[in-house]
């Protein structure tokens, strides 16, 4: 289990990095934290011809968070996001996801944007992005474009990012003061990829749910929002009965896969359980920073 050969590039600037990607196209891979890419390479399941190591680039490690929204740049590690009180205040769903991402030694190296760009369907961050309608900022030599989460996650480990683009930042919209959110999941062992998980939020005004998001991971090739279940929540009070109705809608509409760890029926069942648990927890977090 040793990495295959590759041409190693350590660009000195983002523009150099983008030029390299433009030159090598889909023969190149961006190396940031490497926590997803390197095991794939060691197992020789992936063998990029060119590796563009952006880890040392300056100016890509900033977190900007405020009432207008939160921006996390390409080289912000999970550990930094986990520790950020600004993120806890202004993008609490991101903070809620962090403890679930692997183990600490993984979080100290892995990057938030890397996790999003890798788009593992069982990972937390893509589902969080989908839940809050995050915007992915992709840069290439041709310029910058913004991709909304609903367009970004296209399939299993596949995103709208083009081979010559780097996900330079992810932007989370302003967090409503009346919203609460959480990330809940079931995994075989602590720290494993989830068998199935849920990033959810509720916005409650005058005792009724005004807005809701139920974004599942581990339920298909991409993170999945269950609009039918979200609709059942709107205009209802946040209570067990409401949540049970949403859970029922979730189990009716979700069609997760099966593998050696869990069956489709199991995943569908716990999707309902997590809907109830997640919504109750999200409600309890309204007005409480993560």
């Amino acid at each position: 289990m040793k990495n295959p050969q590759f041409n190693y590039h350590r660009p000195g600037s983002l523009s150099e990095a983008l030029a390299l990607l433009d030159e090598h196209g889909d023969e190149a891979k961006v190396l940031a934290g490497g926590q997803s890419l390197l095991p794939v390479m060691a197992l020789r399941l992936g063998r990029p011809e060119h590796l563009v190591d952006i880890g040392a680039l300056a100016g890509l490690s900033n977190i900007t968070a405020g009432p207008q929204g939160t921006t996390i740049q390409a080289l912000v590690r999970h550990a930094a996001a986990e520790r950020s009180t600004d993120i806890a205040t202004h993008a609490p769903l991101v903070s809620a996801a962090m403890p679930h991402v692997g183990h600490r030694a993984i979080r100290t190296r892995g990057t938030v944007c890397g996790s999003i760009a890798h788009a593992d369907p069982a990972a937390e961050m893509p589902a969080v992005c989908l839940a809050v309608d995050a915007t992915m900022v992709a840069e290439s030599v041709a310029g910058t474009r913004e991709i909304v989460a609903t367009d970004f996650f296209e399939g299993y480990l596949t995103t709208a990012l083009r081979p010559n683009e780097i996900l330079t930042e992810v932007r989370f919209p302003a967090w409503s003061a009346t919203a609460g959110g959480t990330v809940v999941e079931i995994s075989r062992r602590h720290g494993d990829y989830a068998l199935l998980g849920l990033a959810c939020l509720l916005d409650v005004t005058e005792g009724l749910i005004a807005n809701a998001a139920l974004s599942f991971f581990g339920a298909g090739g991409t993170p999945i929002r269950v609009a039918e279940a979200e609709q059942t929540l709107i205009g209802r009070p946040p209570n067990d009965e409401t949540f049970a109705a949403a859970a029922k809608a979730v189990t009716e509409h979700l069609e997760p896969g099966s593998d050696i760890h869990a069956s489709t029926n199991y995943r569908r069942h716990i999707a309902g359980v997590l809907t109830r648990r997640g919504l109750a927890e999200a409600t309890s977090k309204i007005g409480v920073p993560a």
Partner: peptide
């Protein structure tokens, strides 16, 4: 060698990291 067992954990600038999941080049 694929980042699960943790036997290779070292401290990198004071933080724990899997030394099997890093290129030495990244430790420059």
């Amino acid at each position: 060698e694929h980042g699960v067992c943790g036997a290779c954990t070292i401290l990198l600038d004071g933080e724990p990291a899997r030394s099997c999941l890093m290129l030495a080049a990244q430790a420059e």
